[in-house]
Computed example of a mutant assay.
Amino acid sequence: MAACLRSHREAHTGRGAVDRRACRADHRMIWPFVLVLSMLAVGCASAPLDQVGSLQSYDELKPSDGLLARSLMRVAKDDVLAAKTVRIIPTGFSQPAAGTSTLTPAQRGLITNAVDRTLCSGLSRRFQVVALTEPADLTVHAMVTHVAPTNALAVGVSKVASTAVSVALPEVRVPVPRLPIGLGSLSLEAEAIGENGKQAAAMIWGRGANALLDSGRVAREGDAYDLAAKFGHDFSKLLVTGTTPFGKLPSLPTRAELRAMAGGGPKYPACKAFGKSPGLVGFVGDRMGLPPAWTDKGATVRND
């Protein structure tokens, strides 16, 4: 490692050329240490599957876990697939979650709005999303039951370490895992109620940030904000397909989803209440670890 850095320094000052043979040797030497660090850093925050009483019924809920998410769910497939329209009641924090949360109201608002915006986008694949004042075949509502804040300092240290390695080894991409300290987590419960007043689908969902897969944001709400979108994707897939969203290949984004990913408006006017997706600015901000509030303007109109 020292020989490679020395040759780069000499080349930069014009006193010689980069010794690529020394760099390759140093790279081979550092990779075992990187792999060991990766294995030591593998971590995933736990998220409980709490029941807070917001669901009409908890009967017949069965485990259906993904690679990282855990869930209990049930779905009346025929009833869900027969539905054509849906309306979304804005997501809220349950009383236990709000009572124990150290996040500010603004931070909690970004999390719940991320749930609603992702749900609206995902449900638009098959349903027509209508306003709360209009009749609908299904009424969807989610509730945050648990949130663990992110250790913003640990994320910042991880970002600095990743940048330092990139500068030291510009010719190779060395994955630097995030410090497995203060990983955030999020749990929710949600259901879809039919026009007949009966529960058509329900899910209790929990997931924690992963040290290898979630780079993190320098914000206490960072992990919960990112996980909120993951929940929105999972629950909307449950309603769109009538089956578990786990264990399946990812589907290609629709034209409307691509437009939203680029920062464009949503497919249906009812989704405008949850604001525009941060788009490319949000993607870049995520990679840089910026706080969600720096790139996400949040909801434009709240109906609650």
Results as ranks from 00 to 15, higher is better:
165 V>D: 12
6 R>Y: 10
252 L>V: 04
219 A>H: 08
199 Q>A: 09
222 G>Y: 01
10 E>G: 08
153 L>S: 11
164 A>N: 04
98 A>D: 11
296 D>K: 10
6 R>W: 07
269 P>D: 09
92 G>Y: 07
91 T>H: 06
297 K>W: 09
145 T>W: 01
250 P>M: 05
231 F>K: 09
162 S>K: 13
223 D>P: 03
280 L>H: 05
95 Q>Y: 06
22 A>S: 12
97 A>N: 06
137 D>H: 01
95 Q>H: 04
101 S>A: 10
191 E>T: 00
277 S>H: 15
67 L>A: 14
238 L>H: 05
260 A>D: 11
65 D>W: 07
295 T>L: 07
71 S>R: 02
279 G>W: 04
25 A>R: 15
198 K>I: 00
270 A>D: 01
246 F>C: 11
117 R>N: 06
75 V>K: 08
29 M>C: 05
58 Y>L: 10
208 G>C: 02
277 S>G: 05
262 A>L: 14
253 P>E: 09
182 G>P: 10
293 A>P: 01
69 A>Q: 14
133 T>F: 04
4 C>G: 13
26 D>H: 05
258 L>A: 13
35 L>H: 03
261 M>P: 00
98 A>E: 09
274 F>N: 05
246 F>P: 03
90 P>G: 10
258 L>I: 06
148 A>K: 07
11 A>G: 06
41 A>C: 13
106 A>V: 10
300 T>Q: 13
299 A>S: 09
212 L>H: 13
14 G>N: 12
231 F>E: 07
117 R>D: 01
301 V>W: 11
207 R>G: 03
86 V>A: 15
195 E>S: 12
224 A>R: 02
168 A>E: 12
183 L>Y: 13
139 T>Y: 05
79 D>F: 00
206 G>Q: 03
162 S>Q: 15
255 R>Y: 00
56 Q>H: 11
227 L>R: 09
111 I>S: 10
69 A>I: 03
215 S>E: 08
249 L>N: 13
285 G>F: 08
214 D>V: 01
231 F>Y: 14
129 V>K: 03
201 A>H: 03
230 K>V: 11
226 D>L: 06
66 G>V: 04
113 N>E: 04
143 M>G: 00
170 P>W: 11
301 V>Y: 11
68 L>V: 04
232 G>P: 00
285 G>T: 07
179 L>G: 14
299 A>T: 06
148 A>I: 01
7 S>H: 10
42 V>W: 13
29 M>V: 07
127 F>S: 05
173 R>K: 14
234 D>N: 11
56 Q>T: 13
176 V>E: 09
111 I>P: 06
240 V>R: 11
226 D>F: 02
302 R>V: 00
50 D>H: 02
280 L>V: 15
95 Q>W: 05
138 L>V: 03
117 R>Q: 08
163 T>H: 14
265 G>S: 14
214 D>M: 07
202 A>P: 00
123 L>E: 03
140 V>M: 12
229 A>N: 06
72 L>N: 07
280 L>M: 11
198 K>P: 00
115 V>I: 13
174 V>E: 15
173 R>N: 14
294 W>K: 08
274 F>D: 04
102 T>E: 11
157 V>Q: 08
122 G>E: 14
42 V>Q: 15
20 R>S: 06
215 S>I: 05
136 A>I: 04
39 M>T: 12
200 A>G: 07
75 V>T: 10
4 C>S: 14
266 P>L: 05
190 A>C: 02
171 E>Q: 11
18 V>K: 09
61 L>A: 03
